[in-house]
């Protein structure tokens, strides 16, 4: 309970500063509504408006691209990590596209997948897959040599060493990659919802609210997006603690 106090105080402080800015009329009220108004508009949109549906769509797209990214990135990363020479050969390409802003790839993916749902999910999956692949490969390559030797001396062949040792050794790093991957997927999905022909999603709601001067809803949608990112990160941190209980010990 004690650990909860500082973040709560921080959040209250943030709202107070915001309220103060409203009182002091730092900005036009149309551009900067009060916290109470923002909360009211957001709640109304969640209950009666489109916001709940938008959140659902964004979560669905993010999870779908994350699942696709993991299904590709984990096995490919483990396989490449197990053959270090091969990974070194493709490392530059992986690093290059991992460093390329995904938004720069939108036009290319539009050409490849059209203006529908598939493009948003494909770009997000592409970006997340590279992050996951990179982490999985490094997890395998950094496996403790002694553990591999121990399995070898007990008579484990290459396949058993891969399944019984390397995958487990890489698991902490794989989960770190997945956590980074899901965050990245959310970022790309939200941006894609703004700019790639969308009718729903949090990104779409933010940009729509901005164009219609529904400032309260705009701020609310931004906060919802933030809460979503925070929750996904927290969820994966908890999963890491639960599934890799031996990490760091």
């Amino acid at each position: 309970m004690r650990g909860l106090l500082p973040p709560v105080l921080g959040a209250i402080g943030f709202i107070l500063v915001w309220q103060l800015a409203v009182i002091l009329r730092v900005a036009d009220p149309v551009l900067l509504p009060s916290p109470a108004e923002t909360a009211r508009d957001t709640w109304a949109s969640l209950v009666n408006g489109p916001l709940a549906h938008d959140v659902g769509r964004t979560v669905w797209r993010t999870l779908l691209s994350f699942v696709i990214a993991s299904a590709i990135g984990v096995p490919l990363g483990v396989a490449l990590g197990a053959r270090e020479r091969l990974y070194r050969a493709v490392e530059f390409v992986v690093d290059f596209f991992r460093s390329t802003p995904a938004s720069a790839l939108f036009p290319l993916f539009l050409v490849l997948f059209g203006t529908g749902e598939a493009t948003k999910i494909a770009v997000a999956a592409f970006g997340a897959a590279l992050v996951i692949l990179f982490n999985a490969a490094y997890g395998v390559m950094n496996a403790r040599r002694t553990r591999v030797l121990a399995a070898k001396v007990m008579g484990a062949g290459p396949a058993r060493i891969l399944w019984d040792v390397l995958v487990w050794e890489a698991l902490p790093q794989i989960l770190v990659g997945m956590r980074q991957g899901v965050s990245l997927a959310l970022v790309i999905v939200v941006v894609a919802e703004m700019f790639i022909g969308s009718t729903d999603g949090i990104g779409q709601r933010v940009i729509n609210a901005q164009m219609l001067f529904e400032s309260g809803l705009m701020y609310g949608a931004i906060f919802v997006a933030g809460a979503l990112g925070y929750a996904l990160n927290l969820l994966f941190l908890l999963a890491e603690k639960r599934f890799v209980h031996w990490s760091g010990k």
């Binding site: 002694t146 553990r147 121990a150 008579g155 019984d164 698991l171 031996w246």
Partner: peptide, 23 residues
């Protein structure tokens, strides 16, 4: 074979008994 560095030779994701059962 018994390694000097037991910390890195045992499989930490397996219980002690499962480490012994493994071979």
């Amino acid at each position: 074979y018994v390694f000097q560095n037991y910390r890195e030779a045992l499989l930490p994701w397996k219980r002690a008994a499962d480490n012994i059962r493994y071979p």
